[in-house]
Design a protein around this nucleic acid. Structure first.
Lengths: 159, 159
DNA sequence: CCATATTTGTTTCCTAGTAAACAAAATGCG
DNA sequence: CGCATTTTGTTTACTAGGAAACAAATATGG
């Protein structure tokens, strides 16, 4: 038995958090993260880095601050990922002529090769509906999350 | 202007992540976290600690491992919170006679006083529907999240 | 044109949480 | 009983990410 206290856990009264939206969202994100790893963990790349690599394929030359904002992570954190990906030889930083504060990001050859390898796995993962929801329910869930977030656009673009 | 590149952000092509469930969940959790802080930030207590204090009011003597499992955090992390809350004089650790590995948690007087002060704020926060969703939509969203998570029980108890 | 303010990215320190190795207690099986 | 296994909690080292202070470059208002 993995959990001696399995029976006891059932009796923790989670009120007033058990049905809170924030709590459900946290659990759902943990679960979704596990799904992500189950499908893509074999690629042994961190989720954030995988995201940047794949997005750079469709957005060559994007400024790292813009990418950070689109992904809702802070510039400070993006700077660290950019450094790591640069040291790994997967991306190239380029300072544009017209604004020498900025940094534009491009995939290196190695990065582009990796991106081509990642894309089908990512696409397959996205297409897979969670086992506990029907496709219609998944669509409704996504629609409500977008509405909650005041996003209107189901395409691959930021709001 | 806070964001010079605001216009540029709109043109980051987020495909294939822009409509991914995992991405939407991440954004939603960030938003929900901000809502939590907007309502409860003035209590200057960390969210995790607030959760433990309020839950201990309804679950006196719960074992810390059981509480960790119910909240889906690891025991290692719960151990740190327990130590911090103990040092702050808010909870008391008690080793039961019949199992001297275990630790049962109780609120101290100071902890109970704090819990009484927190409870109405938490209740009010939970009752508040997000501005972008109708109450019916919020209910549907929660129901779908519970189904996604394979939880059946909308009460304040773990599944 | 020049001083001031803002933007961009980086660094440093911090928080939340995980993973792995561990010790002590309890359980189980010969 | 006695030894191996499991459970419970802790410690240490790590990852993801944020906050604040900073420097360089650019924009702006006089």
């Amino acid at each position: 038995m993995a959990e001696t206290q399995g029976a006891t856990v059932d009796r923790v009264r989670l009120a007033p958090f058990g049905d809170a939206l924030g709590f459900l969202l946290r659990l759902a994100q943990i679960d979704s993260f596990e799904r992500f790893f189950a499908d893509l963990g074999h690629l042994d790349l961190r989720p954030g880095e995988l995201t940047v690599i794949v997005l750079l394929e469709g957005n060559p030359g994007v400024r790292q601050g813009v990418l950070a904002e689109a992904l809702k992570i802070k510039r400070a954190h993006m700077a660290k990922m950019v450094r790591a990906l640069g040291e790994a030889g997967l991306i190239r930083r380029e300072v544009p002529e017209d604004d020498r504060r900025a940094v534009e990001l491009y995939l290196t050859e190695a990065g582009a090769t990796l991106a081509r390898r990642l894309r089908p796995a990512v696409t397959a993962h996205e297409a897979r509906t969670p086992a506990t929801l029907t496709p219609a329910e998944t669509a409704t869930l996504k629609r409500l999350l977008r509405k909650y977030l005041a996003l209107t656009d189901p395409e691959g673009t930021t709001p």
